[in-house]
């Protein structure tokens, strides 16, 4: 009896998982990928997939409809960019306008490396200069050392 009750109890936990699986499988894979790449314009740092805003649901419907009409993934993106601008893409395009966005960080890193390099080199050069003594100092030093020789 106890086993049966346990078994029934476990079923309650299985049911939601089964539904979740079905939900994902029902969706067209392309649509699913697009949902992840497109921004919800209401909750602006969420993708269409994560957002529950009414507009996100509408946009999801548009994406599905367009895919069914035979649009490719790129076509759907272009369609939405024409209406909402590039902001709707969570990952900006590789374009001339976005050069600073994509390569800015690397550029600044290189500047940093360059500055550090020069700084370190200068420091080591200073050190060498510090080691060399003037003639007077060298004589003095020699005198002291000579006097101390046992």
């Amino acid at each position: 009896m106890k086993t049966i009750i346990k078994f029934i109890f476990c079923i309650f936990f299985i049911v939601p998982v089964v539904f979740a699986e079905n939900n994902i499988n029902d969706k067209n894979q392309d649509a699913y990928d697009l949902y992840k790449e497109l921004r919800c314009l209401v909750c602006q740092n969420q993708s269409l997939l994560e957002s529950n805003a009414p507009l996100a649901l509408d946009l999801r419907k548009v994406v599905l409809d367009k895919l069914e009409e035979g649009y490719t993934k790129e076509d759907v993106k272009t369609f939405l960019v024409e209406r909402y601008g590039e902001f709707i893409l969570l990952k900006p395009k590789y374009s001339v306008q976005n050069i600073l966005l994509w390569f800015g960080p690397i550029f600044f890193l290189l500047i940093g490396v360059f500055v550090t390099f020069i700084f370190l080199r200068k420091q080591s050069m200073n050190k060498e200069e510090g080691i060399s003594l003037s003639k007077e100092e060298a004589d003095n030093l020699k005198k002291i050392l000579d006097n101390n020789v046992p």
């Binding site: 314009l41 209401v42 009414p54 507009l55 509408d58 419907k61 548009v62 209406r83 909402y84 601008g85």
Partner: peptide
């Protein structure tokens, strides 16, 4: 009615 026409206008709120 379903808000789909306004998407062509880029309406988001």
């Amino acid at each position: 009615l379903d808000g789909l026409q306004s998407i062509n206008l880029g309406v988001y709120g």
